[in-house]
Nucleic acid binder design. Structure first.
Lengths: 155, 155
DNA sequence: GCCAGAATCACCCGAACGGATGACGACGGG
DNA sequence: CCCGTCGTCATCCGTTCGGGTGATTCTGGC
C-alpha cells in the first residue's frame, strides 16, 4: 500500500523531472551552441538510454518478484533459552565479563548504573565498553547493541 | 499528511535531480573548455542517464518486492510484518517523525548520521530525541530503545 | 481567519560518553 | 618460572548527548 503510493509518486514526479532535464538541455543547447547540433543528438540518445535503462530495470525486477516469495521464511523467533552464539563470541575474543557489560548496555543502563550493579568502578565499566566497541566494530552504545543483536550475541 | 508525504518524496527525488543537472552542467563546462570532445561527452551523459534509469527501475521494483514480502510473510508463525502498536503510540502522543527518529536510534545512528539521512539539521534531530525521551520516560538512547522494544513500538 | 499541533532550527550548558594510554594483581599454561 | 590473558582502576581530553528555552514555518481543523 505504502510502497505502491511511493512508486506512483515516483513516477508522477520522477519522469517529468527526467523530461525536464532533457528539455532544459535542449533549450540550453539552442541558445549556447547553435552550431553543435551533434550534442542535441547526444541528449536524445541519452534520453533513449534512460528509457532503455528504466525498461531494463523494470523488466529485471519484475521477474525477480516471483523468486522472492521463498526467501522470506527465515525469521523464526521461537521461544526458548537464548544461547549467545559462541562462534561469533570467541571469534571476536569477547570475554564473559564483556558480554555481561554488553547485556547491561542493551538494557539501557548508564555507566554509573552498570558500575553499581557489578560492584566495580565506573572506570572499569568504561574500559570494558571501549574494548567491547573495538571487538564489535562500533563506536557508540546503540550501535554496539544493534551489531550484537544481528550477530546473535544478545537476545 | 498525505500532501506532506508527497512533498517529502518530491524533495527526496527532486533535489537529487537538481543536483544531477548541476553536475551535468559542470561536466559540460569542463569538457567544453578543454576541448570539444562531444562524443565522449555524449557517451558519459548516456551512461549517466542509463544508470539513473536502471537505478530508478531497481527502486521501483524494490518497493514492489517489499509488497510481495509482506503478503508472503503472513503465514509465518510468530514474526509477521511488524506493526508499531498504535495504541501505545498515540497514547503517548508519539508523532510519525518521532517514530522515525526512534527507529534510527535503534539502528545505532548518531545525531549527525540521522540528520544526514533525514535531510534535517542536527538540532532538529536533537529536539525530536528530547521529546521522544519525554514520551518514553527515558533519559538515554539505549534506555529509549529498550523501552520502545518492550512497548512494541519498534521491531 | 485564527489556533493548535507538527516539524524545523538555534543556542547554551553541564553531564555523559568515547578514545588513548598506563598500570597492577590474579590466574593458568607452557 | 615466565608470559599472556583477564579483570580491575586511573587520568586526560575532546566529542557527543541530554535538558532547557525560544522561535519560525506550515498545515489542518474549527
Amino acid at each position: 500500500m505504502r510502497a505502491r503510493a511511493v512508486a506512483r509518486v515516483l513516477l508522477l514526479y520522477g519522469v517529468p523531472a527526467g523530461l525536464l532535464i532533457v528539455a532544459l538541455r535542449v533549450v540550453e543547447y539552442r541558445f549556447l551552441v547553435v552550431d553543435h547540433a551533434v550534442e542535441i543528438y547526444g541528449a536524445i540518445i541519452a534520453a533513449l538510454f534512460a528509457a532503455v535503462g528504466i525498461a531494463l530495470g523494470l523488466r529485471l525486477t519484475r521477474s525477480r518478484v516471483v523468486v522472492r516469495e521463498v526467501t522470506v521464511e527465515v525469521p523464526v523467533p521461537v521461544a526458548g533459552p537464548f544461547t549467545p552464539n559462541r562462534r561469533e563470541l570467541d571469534a571476536r575474543g569477547i570475554t564473559p565479563r564483556e558480554l555481561e557489560i554488553l547485556k547491561l548496555i542493551a538494557e539501557g543502563l548508564s555507566t554509573r548504573e552498570m558500575a553499581g550493579r557489578l560492584f566495580v568502578s565506573e572506570n572499569t565499566v568504561k574500559t570494558h565498553c571501549s574494548r567491547l566497541f573495538d571487538k564489535l566494530g562500533a563506536n557508540r552504545r546503540t550501535k554496539a547493541v544493534q551489531v550484537a543483536k544481528t550477530l546473535g550475541l544478545i537476545a
